[in-house]
Design a binder for these strands. Structure first.
Lengths: 224, 224
DNA sequence: ATGTCGTTTGAATCCCGCA
DNA sequence: CTGCGGGATTCAAACGACA
């Protein structure tokens, strides 16, 4: 027998658009949401050998899902949403329409990025907006809002904007308990699901691209 | 003989409102601007022993000065403006109306802050928006957009929101050359002026509070 | 120099009383 | 009931004193 919420099986990556997927989830059924949406900047992997195609739905800020995300999240639950300094203003405004934003966590990654080599500083961070519905208490001892976590080695990337599993582990440990249900609206490389599995949480994930779902399922199988 | 630009003497902290002060400066007369405006958050110095009064003009986002700041800055000059994650969206939008924003630098400070001790992460960073007029080239070797610099020890504070001189030194070295003129619209503790003086730049600074001007002049004299 | 322990502090936020 | 204002509070990192 497989556990489900609404119509959807748990611990599964569903090949669905977020907006459709969220419609199938009941109100207040989710403990934690970890979202790594398309940043809305038409991202193209900058590496020489164009390993990936352009990300779908990445030309405009896509934030409709936030309404349903708020609905399905339990009172006292948390939302973590990755973003970047140049689109932060948009995301900040949209998220704060539904949630209470508590922190902007800095993911301080090692190494540098490319970009304008002479007229800009080397990009070494991304943002992680931490927001809550009602009152959410963080577990364990108090930690700072700057997280130094190295990137995954480039060769191991299965997705162009892959985040380290370590980040997802930190989020899950601070903001959920075992057996809690973690919603992953944009599954991508599946790192959030891997972390949930490792830490004994259940998850429900969505992605539209079958190739990434396959890659993520591969990583989940390895983590078993 | 004292050097001046417009009606104002150089290497001096003028007891003036920024908007009035900037009116006295000619177009394209400034090489670099370092701004630490009131964030618009009604900050009350949170320490036990209320050493400082509240900050003037901190009840609203005050951004009129940006228009004149753009006018007085040379083409190819840079603006650095401190802000914080919860008002960043406002400042980002206003600055980008006049300048091209190139980076959001993270000042990663040591220690933590107070705040919501159980429901939020410990605040350990502030933002520094780096923006340009035209094409600005950073000097020296490429560095990252995360700057780890310890705070000044609290006991040495002469202003409630004092920034380390080290930060100003980094800004000045990356974005100006000797003898260049640095504009400091909100002088505060005078750290930016001290850095300019140490590095052989000239400066022109404004502040409305005579007590902070006196304190800043004290620090300048020490740095001599 | 290295280690332990006690003290201090932070661009807070919560929460209560009062208007 | 909402809005404002001031006091109380809390933790980990940094610092200083001392062994």
């Amino acid at each position: 027998m497989t556990a489900t919420i609404g119509e959807l099986t748990l611990d599964t990556i569903h090949q669905m658009d977020v907006n459709d997927g969220l419609k199938d989830l009941p109100e207040s059924s989710i403990d934690l949401i970890i979202a790594d949406p398309p940043y809305g900047i038409n991202y193209r992997s900058g590496s020489r050998k164009r390993k990936f195609t352009t990300i779908r739905n990445d030309d405009t800020i896509m934030a409709d899902w936030l309404t349903d995300a708020h609905r399905v999240l339990k009172d006292g639950g948390a939302l973590y949403c990755y973003t970047r300094w140049d689109v932060y203003a948009e995301w900040y405004n949209r998220i704060s329409q539904h949630f209470t934003i508590k922190n902007c966590i800095i993911w301080h990654k090692n190494g540098g990025g490319m970009g304008d080599l002479r007229g800009a500083y080397s990009p070494a961070h991304e943002f992680l907006i931490y927001a809550v519905k009602g009152r959410h208490i963080l577990k364990g001892k108090r930690i700072s809002d700057v997280w130094q976590v190295p990137r995954d080695p480039g060769a191991t990337y299965v997705h162009p904007t892959q985040k380290p599993v370590k980040l997802a582990e930190m989020i899950i440990e601070k903001s959920s308990e075992p057996v809690d249900i973690v919603l992953v609206p944009f599954c991508g490389s599946g790192g959030d699901c891997v972390a949930a599995k490792k830490l004994g949480r259940r998850f429900i994930a969505f992605d539209v691209e079958q190739q990434y779902i396959d890659a993520a399922n591969g990583r989940l199988a390895e983590a078993a």
